[in-house]
Amino acid sequence: MLALSVHQLSKTYANGLQALNAVDLQVEAGDFFALLGPNGAGKSTLIGIVTSLVRKSGGRVEVFGHDLDREPEAVRANIGVVPQEFNFNLFLPAIEVVLNQAGYFGVPRKEARGRAEMLLRKLDLWDRRETEMRRLSGGMKRRLMIARALVHRPRLVILDEPTAGVDIEIRRTMWGFMREINAEGTTIILTTHYLEEAESLCRNIAIIDHGRIQSRTDIATLLSELDTETFVLNLKGRVCQLPSLGGFVLEHIDESTLEVQISREHTINGLFEALSRNGIEVLSLRNKQNRLEKLFLDRVEAGRGATP
C-alpha cells in the first residue's frame, strides 16, 4: 500500500516562481524515506502541499488512498508534521501545545493527556511540561514538535529537517526515537541537510531539484553506484616518499596523513595489505566525504546539466 502518492504535482507561486513541475512520487507504507534537495529545490513546497499548508496549482495527492481534494479531513488526520521552523505559541506551557494539537485532531482530552505524558517522557520533556515554550532550549523545542506531531497517532510522519541546530547527543536520541516509531509501522518522510542522517536512517530516497524529482531509488542501490571512495588515513609514522600502490591513488595531506582513492573493484583489505608491504602502519581511517553527499552532489549536478 502506498502511504503517499503524488501525481503530476505542480505549484507556481503568485510571483511566478515555479516551485514544483509535474512531480511524481510514491512512498510505500512503512518506509523510512529521505527527500533530499538543495535549498529552494521544492522540498518544502511539496511538504506544504501534502500537509495542506500550501495550495497546489495542479496534480493529485493521495495519502493512504485518500484524495486530498475529495477527502481532505482523512488526508490530514493521517499525517503528522514536524516543520522546519518553530510554529507554536511561545507563551503556552509545553504540555498545552501538545494537548491543543490533540484536541484539533479530535482526540478526547483524557486520552490526549495519557498520550502526551507518554510522548513527553519518551522525549525527555516531562519535567519541563509546565515550562512556557519560549523558555525551552532549541533542542527541546524540536523534540516537542515531534511529540506534537505524534499525539494523534498519524500513520505518515513528515519530518522537515527535524535535527537542524540540534547537538549531536540529542540528534542521536532523536534518531533512535524515529527508528522506533518506524519499526512500529509508521511511515516516515525525512528531509535533511545532514546526509549522514539520511544514509543512517532511510531505506529509500528521492532527490529533488528545480521542482523536479531527479532521482528516486533505494539507498543501497544508490550507494552501489559509487565508482570511487576517498578515505583519509592517519599514520603511525611519517611517510616522506609516497609508494606506488597498484589500483590505489595516494596523496599527501601532510607527512603523517594520507588521502587514498579506492575504486569499486578494490577493497580496503587490499589497501591495508599493500600499505603493510610498504611498511606503512595505519592508526585510523575515515571517509573524506559522506558517501551519500558525493552521490547527491553528482545527481544534482547531472540534473542541472540536463535541465534546459
Partner: peptide
C-alpha cells in the same frame, strides 16, 4: 508500550461530530 501505535491509525473513523 507503542509510541505511535500507528497500526491503529488516527481517529478519523471516530464519530465525525464528536471530533
Amino acid at each position: 508500550m507503542n509510541i505511535n501505535a500507528a497500526n491503529k491509525g488516527p481517529l478519523i473513523d471516530a464519530n465525525r461530530w464528536r471530533r
